[in-house]
Write a protein that binds this DNA or RNA. Structure first.
Lengths: 336, 336
DNA sequence: ACTTTTTGTGCAACCGCTTTCTTTATTTTC
DNA sequence: GAAAATAAAGAAAGCGGTTGCACAAAAAGT
């Protein structure tokens, strides 16, 4: 059974195919009368334009690519991911673009796939949901000059990017603990290839210096991956022997693990500050009165918006790369 | 700058465009010698086929649509979602299909979008990541006869579906508590439009009956939404006054909230059983020794596989609808 | 050695829409 | 009321592939 084409509509409406095409595009050079007539027929025939034909002829795919990191447990478990995605989805529903997911297990697979969808004209722009050093996919995006925005800060890449100001947040978090009277504060990091870990660390150091507290290399803990369980074990094994009175925990999952361990042993000596993708006041460790709400959904929101701006006037956007910080706020753990 | 087309490759390789096309498709009617020659030129020219042209001519989009529920917090917060997605992504990387996300805030927007991508021939199949009663999107999928698989059980819909056997799991969970000596067991449900909540409830009832425990209507708690915080409040306000000695908690987020509350007040009287999307042994409430690991990533895996089978021989798959249960297992909370 | 298959390529129509260029109809202007 | 200007719709040439069919060359059969 043949699908209904633009010609079927044209014939039944008594106009030319080109006219129907213009009606679909809501072109201003078609009279209201004609539009109405054609639209009626489109409804009757239940016509939907073939997107592939539209794209081939019009060369706009109305689709954005979403680049995920190699499927790692840590990424998928982290609330950051669904939260940003929610923001993206929200922004997308304001326009009629679609999202295409990149896939692939290995880096090589992922590069192949992204090449295919970019060079194959399936997507008009790319959103990277992670930022690591020397990422081959990002390199490809730059050389192929497709509008791209990175959620996070991949060094000095020549792309748009949107992120929290992690250096400042690291500072704020640390200073908050200092104000609360902490004097021996550890920094719990994680994967040192992730820029936000490094940036928050910078802020942490600044805060110590600014408050004349000694900075010591062994206050920094990075020897574990990004899973909550690692945080839990870290808290059980390492931290409690180190006599810390404060912890700045850069990763959300790790923070959950640590805070759980501390709560279980009713440890209220060690205060913590952590960063959460969004507000979820459930997680109310004994050890934390405030946390930093990163508003990660806004990252997704802005990423889409920036891409649209870039798409709207490619030339202008090539001139300069937008580096935008989304504001985060310190939020009390309990509302009362 | 014109992109490189199949004709450019053909000319440089000294063959016809149709031959190049066949080389791209790795057709068996092209000799090895010619393939090699053409591939070399494709590399030199850095040729990538235009996906839109391929689809228009070949009418296969090599893309699957992923249908999400209306963006609700609860869904995006629930570990189920990223876990299934991980499974899907994994299965996708085994073939060269892509995933297109459905979007839209309102039901109407979502229906419009899905109609556009299905009728517009952007996707060959659909994966539903939720199952609710009388879903208009699912109705559309059925009437348009696009191969679809639902993760979850939408009543008696004529589509493929893959799910855990929630009725049995409800029974197993409840019986586990009974074996541990519980006699007054509550069922904590949630959104009664979700089939898995109802199915697990059925199993719960069966277990009570089978063990001659009285079933009482007010043992069932459904008066709240799906957020962890709700579980937390429920535990603080309602449950502790009800003298339960066991809880079967149908939703993972709610379970977290409840278990957190119980842990905080060191309540070890109330044993709980909950269902988790995957293994994450961090969450170790005092009140739970075992949980049910749903292996949700396998749902994603199988959903993709089923869709591919359906795509491979459309006729055969229309005959019968695959209803497949993914096995879940009871897992001890701690490994030791 | 000559017909019959088999194999490997090319030709050309077509997929369904967009868009430039023209033509025709309708106003506006003097 | 004729000429010029403007608005509305059509004709046709792509967009970049795929694929049924024709055809030549090579392999096989007698």
């Amino acid at each position: 059974m043949m699908p209904i084409t633009i010609r079927d509509v044209a014939k039944k409406a008594g106009v030319a195919p080109s006219t129907v095409s213009r009606v679909v595009a809501d072109s201003s050079s078609i009279s209201g009368k004609t539009k109405e007539k054609v639209r009626k027929v489109m409804d009757e025939l239940n016509y939907f334009p073939n997107a592939n034909a539209q794209r081939l002829a019009g060369s706009r795919s109305k689709t954005l690519g979403l680049v995920l990191p190699s499927a790692s447990d840590a990424f998928y478990q982290n609330p950051f991911f669904p939260t940003v995605l929610r923001g993206i989805n929200y922004a997308m529903s304001q326009n009629d673009y679609s999202i295409l997911l990149s896939s692939g297990q290995t880096n090589h697979q992922r590069l192949k796939h992204i090449q295919k969808i970019v060079r194959g004209k399936q997507v008009e722009g790319l959103i990277f949901l992670y930022a690591t050093k020397d990422d081959p996919l990002l390199a490809f995006a730059q050389e192929s000059a497709i509008p791209s925005v990175v959620v996070g800060s991949p060094g000095d890449a020549k792309v748009h990017l949107v992120d929290n100001d992690n250096e400042e947040l690291g500072r704020i978090a640390t200073e908050h603990l200092i104000k609360k009277g902490c004097e021996k504060i550890a920094y719990i990091g994680g994967d040192m290839d992730q820029f936000f870990i490094l940036d928050r660390l910078k802020g942490y150091k600044q805060a110590l210096v600014a408050n004349s507290l000694p900075f010591q290399e062994h206050f920094i803990h990075n020897d574990f991956s990004f899973l909550a369980l690692d945080g839990y074990h870290l808290a059980q094994n390492t931290l409690k022997f180190a006599q810390y009175d404060g912890l700045v925990i850069a990763d959300e999952l790790v923070a959950e693990g640590i805070q759980k361990a501390l709560t279980e042993e009713k440890n209220t000596q060690i205060k913590t500050m952590s960063f959460k993708a969004y507000e979820h006041p459930l997680y109310r460790p004994l050890t934390e009165e405030f946390y930093i709400n990163l508003n990660s959904h806004l990252l997704g929101n802005r990423a889409v918006e920036i891409l649209f701006d870039a798409l709207a006037d490619k030339e202008a956007s090539k001139q300069r790369y937008i580096h935008e910080y989304i504001s985060a706020d310190i939020v009390p753990v309990r509302e009362d």
